[in-house]
Amino acid sequence: MISSLKHYLGVYRYFVTTSVSEALSFRTSFILLVLMDIFFYFSVLFSVDFLFDHMQTIGPWNRYQLLFFICFMLNIDTIHMGVFSSNFWMLGFKIRTGELDFDLLKPTHSIFICFFRYLKPSSLLTAPVAWGLLIYYGSKIGLLWYDWLLIPPLLLLGLSLLCVLEFILCTSMFWLVEGMGINFLRMQMQQMARWPDFIYKYTYQKIFTIGVPLLLIGSGPVHFILDKSNWHYLAGMCLAIVISTLILVKIWNKALRQYDSASS
């Protein structure tokens, strides 16, 4: 167990170094990526802030509560962008071109290689901006010391749920061969999760909380931070992660069984 953990960490270290070494060889892209991310943060915050010029609350939340939620999601996004997002695009490409063959030959689990291989180091530079925004709006809604301590683990919890759901979705690329449509759907999924659960009408809210637990990703943790009696959200998230992981392993194995490798 320990030795296999060491093995994976060792491999992961080189995923990081190779990604950094690649990213730094493209300087202009690197800078543009940072700019794009920051631009994106502010465009999201701006549009929410702008909405509040025309109203006082959306659902039960006021301006700063909603902006805090948005920043929470932005922080999940930042880690997600830095650590995972490139892999989803690459997976479609690899399946289409048959380059996945090489990944399947390696003596580590294929899920690990497929979804953890490529990192985007530019997110390291944008992460502080996202933290800064989260801290700013956190202090605006008067978080207490233990709330601050809760934020990092809750971010990770939300991130894990988002990723497992995306892994499951991306496994379908094995059947579709082309990844564009799935990545498109994946981004739409993220979009849905970027808004708090209460904006959705009753039925949809239930479907996307219980059926496909998308809305738990950000709304779960933030509801809990704002009101500690909402602990059931967190229990739901843990359960969702466990069940989704089981589903993922099952359909992943099924996908690999019928992978037919583009001929050379």
């Binding site: 093995h7 090489f102 390696k106």
Partner: peptide, 25 residues
């Protein structure tokens, strides 16, 4: 495979080898 490449295009081969060293322990 003569028609496919497992090396990473945009970095030196040595970086890929070091990664393989970790893969195969």
């Amino acid at each position: 495979m003569g028609q496919k490449s497992q090396l990473w295009w945009d970095i030196p081969a040595m970086d890929s080898f070091l990664l393989l060293q970790k893969f195969y322990e």
